[in-house]
Amino acid sequence: MRRRTGAAIAGAAALAWGEWLNWRWSRTLVGDRVGDAEAVVVLGYRNPGETVNLVNRWRVRAGLRSVAAGPAVSTRMIFSGGPTTGGTAEARLLADYARSQHAFVGPVFLEDRSRTTWENITQVIPLLAGVDRIKIVSQPAHALKARAYLRRQRPDLAARLVRAEDYRPGEWLLAKPLLAVYGLWTLRVLRGDERRGRGSR
């Protein structure tokens, strides 16, 4: 009985830890910038085939729910990701999925050459001109990494970063401890001030 109780407590603690870390990452290196023109940047994930994988389907949905409501808001949806095995670029697959499965009819821009997160940011920078707010959509740790890279490359644009809707309580609940462990490993390339959201922006 004690073993089961201990296991249950440990499991609950792991779930809470994963939930908290993902929540914190989703709120790091973002501000409260206002404005009517926004860009929602959806980053692709390892899609070697011609069918959109599970992670990319979720990222498209998270990107679409990140679009601000209201007729006065102008949103450009940017899908980023090059081909992983010489086939169709991830950006194209994501855009086609958004239109065919979710009937998205807004402006779409494709960045279809990048192969790394650093390249994602480098290549989308020209597409961010003239927007008031920038939302980067991915799993929270990966999105934080991308925001940190934008801050390194273009601090002026990073000042326009706001939170996307890529974190929701309970979503991916059972996977969040694993996502948290993987996130900690991937974020080791960031400086402490970037992981904590401190310093100049």
Results as ranks from 00 to 15, higher is better:
residue 72 A to M: 09
residue 118 W to T: 07
residue 130 G to S: 13
residue 99 R to Q: 14
residue 13 A to E: 04
residue 38 E to C: 05
residue 142 H to Y: 14
residue 8 A to C: 11
residue 88 T to I: 13
residue 142 H to A: 13
residue 16 A to G: 14
residue 13 A to T: 15
residue 83 P to V: 03
residue 103 A to D: 10
residue 40 V to C: 13
residue 58 W to N: 05
residue 87 G to W: 07
residue 84 T to R: 09
residue 118 W to P: 00
residue 127 L to E: 10
residue 124 V to E: 04
residue 43 L to F: 08
residue 109 F to A: 15
residue 131 V to T: 14
residue 59 R to V: 06
residue 94 L to G: 12
residue 53 N to T: 03
residue 79 F to L: 09
residue 36 D to L: 15
residue 123 Q to F: 14
residue 32 D to F: 03
residue 137 V to W: 08
residue 19 E to T: 02
residue 16 A to E: 09
residue 25 W to V: 02
residue 90 E to N: 06
residue 139 Q to N: 14
residue 22 N to Y: 03
residue 14 A to R: 03
residue 130 G to I: 11
residue 52 V to D: 03
residue 38 E to T: 05
residue 133 R to T: 03
residue 88 T to A: 11
residue 32 D to M: 00
residue 72 A to I: 03
residue 8 A to D: 01
residue 61 R to M: 09
residue 81 G to S: 09
residue 10 A to N: 02
residue 100 S to C: 01
residue 49 G to L: 05
residue 101 Q to F: 10
residue 70 G to A: 10
residue 127 L to H: 13
residue 121 I to S: 01
residue 55 V to S: 12
residue 46 R to T: 07
residue 139 Q to G: 10
residue 49 G to P: 01
residue 15 L to V: 14
residue 42 V to G: 08
residue 26 S to D: 11
residue 24 R to V: 11
residue 102 H to G: 02
residue 41 V to D: 08
residue 100 S to N: 15
residue 60 V to Y: 04
residue 23 W to S: 07
residue 126 P to T: 06
residue 12 A to N: 01
residue 82 G to H: 05
residue 108 V to T: 08
residue 10 A to Y: 03
residue 70 G to K: 11
residue 13 A to W: 00
residue 130 G to T: 11
residue 69 A to H: 13
residue 22 N to W: 04
residue 83 P to C: 04
residue 83 P to K: 05
residue 36 D to C: 01
residue 105 V to S: 15
residue 35 G to I: 13
residue 40 V to I: 15
residue 29 L to M: 13
residue 118 W to D: 12
residue 46 R to V: 10
residue 32 D to R: 08
residue 91 A to W: 09
residue 22 N to Q: 14
residue 21 L to V: 02
residue 145 K to L: 15
residue 74 S to N: 06
residue 17 W to I: 12
residue 18 G to N: 04
residue 107 P to G: 04
residue 146 A to I: 06
residue 125 I to Y: 01
residue 43 L to Q: 07
residue 136 I to S: 07
residue 59 R to D: 08
residue 129 A to Q: 14
residue 85 T to C: 01
residue 111 E to S: 14
residue 107 P to Y: 00
residue 133 R to E: 03
residue 55 V to E: 12
residue 18 G to F: 05
residue 72 A to P: 00
residue 134 I to W: 06
residue 44 G to N: 05
residue 12 A to V: 13
residue 100 S to Y: 00
residue 68 A to C: 01
residue 104 F to M: 08
residue 45 Y to C: 04
residue 93 L to C: 05
residue 71 P to M: 01
residue 14 A to T: 09
residue 119 E to S: 05
residue 93 L to S: 08
residue 16 A to C: 13
residue 117 T to V: 11
residue 136 I to G: 07
residue 13 A to P: 00
residue 139 Q to R: 12
residue 23 W to I: 00
residue 141 A to L: 06
residue 79 F to V: 05
residue 60 V to T: 03
residue 139 Q to L: 12
residue 74 S to W: 00
residue 62 A to F: 06
residue 135 K to D: 08
residue 14 A to N: 07
residue 28 T to K: 09
residue 44 G to R: 04
residue 88 T to W: 00
residue 51 T to V: 15
residue 35 G to M: 13
residue 32 D to T: 10
residue 106 G to H: 03
residue 96 D to W: 00
residue 65 R to N: 06
residue 120 N to K: 11
residue 56 N to R: 00
residue 111 E to T: 10
residue 54 L to W: 13
residue 137 V to L: 10
residue 132 D to G: 15
residue 59 R to N: 08
residue 98 A to L: 08
residue 91 A to F: 09
residue 104 F to I: 07
